[in-house]
Computed example of a mutant assay.
Amino acid sequence: MGDTDERVKPNRVVFVTVGTTCFDTLVRAVDTKEVKEALSLKGYTHLLIQMGRGSYVPTKSNGEDGSLVVDYFTFSSSIADSLRSASLVISHAGSGSIFETLRLGKPLIVVVNEDLMDNHQSELAEELAERKHLFCARPQTLYQTIAGMDLESLIPYSPGDATPVAKQINRFLGFPDD
């Protein structure tokens, strides 16, 4: 074994998703020098950004200078593979993206889009952050969230059992218990 073999870091991918929306403020935030450096300091090697309908185009990088390898795409028929291969997910506050990531057991930072009217998504993200299933940030606080996050503090999410609720509804409707 040569010296170079020992220095090869395993890929640790940060996957950023905005879903089908336009969330340029999130894409801009992850494309800043300070956020990229904070991710590098945490041991991440790659940044893959799904930018949706946005018009802001992040800066690609091949990582030659020791920085993160950065790539992006607009849409994919399925982001499941990107989620599965990620070491960290940074997502918009869409419930589908949140729960798909949590079911896979991936550490998650949810970034709330404050430009949305009637932002019920922020309530979901903040509740799950309070329960320590994920970290919640705003585009302007993303750097501080990454720099200060302790992944060991997260509690794995386990979906609830709907059986008691279903039985209660059946009883109410007059159906017999099984």
Rank of each mutant, 00 (worst) to 15 (best):
S95P: 08
K106A: 12
F73R: 01
E130R: 15
V112C: 02
E152G: 03
Q121Y: 05
E127M: 05
D81G: 00
G105S: 10
D115T: 15
L88H: 02
V110W: 09
A147L: 05
L124H: 00
E126G: 05
V110N: 06
V89D: 13
F135M: 11
K106S: 12
K106T: 07
I98G: 03
D65C: 06
N119D: 09
S82G: 00
L104E: 13
G94L: 07
S82V: 00
G148E: 15
E123H: 11
S82Q: 09
E123V: 08
S78E: 00
L154N: 07
N113M: 02
Y143F: 14
K132W: 09
A125M: 12
G94K: 03
I146D: 01
L151V: 14
V69Q: 06
R103Y: 14
T145L: 03
Y72E: 01
H133L: 07
Q121R: 04
E100T: 12
L124T: 06
F135H: 11
H133A: 04
A129K: 00
L128Y: 08
D115H: 10
S76A: 10
A80Q: 07
V69K: 09
A86K: 02
G94W: 04
L151T: 04
L151A: 08
V89L: 14
A129E: 11
L116K: 01
H120A: 13
M149S: 06
L116I: 11
M149T: 08
L104W: 12
G94E: 02
A147E: 05
I79E: 05
K132I: 09
I98V: 13
F135V: 10
F73V: 01
L128K: 00
E127A: 05
A125T: 10
R131I: 00
A125D: 08
I98A: 05
A147N: 03
T141P: 12
Y143Q: 09
S95W: 06
P107Q: 07
L83W: 13
R103I: 12
S67A: 14
E127S: 09
G148T: 13
H120C: 13
L116D: 08
G94F: 05
L151P: 03
A86W: 06
A137W: 03
V89S: 14
L88C: 04
V111C: 11
Q121T: 03
H92Y: 15
L134K: 01
Q140E: 15
M149K: 02
Q140T: 14
L102T: 01
V112S: 01
V89W: 09
V110G: 09
D71S: 14
P139C: 10
F99S: 14
L104K: 14
D115L: 14
D81N: 02
L102C: 02
E152N: 04
S97L: 11
S97Y: 11
S87I: 08
V112G: 01
H120N: 11
C136N: 15
T74Q: 10
L142R: 05
V89I: 15
V89T: 12
L124V: 10
I146G: 00
R84Y: 12
N119Y: 04
I109T: 02
A129M: 11
L154R: 07
L104I: 12
Y143S: 05
A137N: 06
N119I: 03
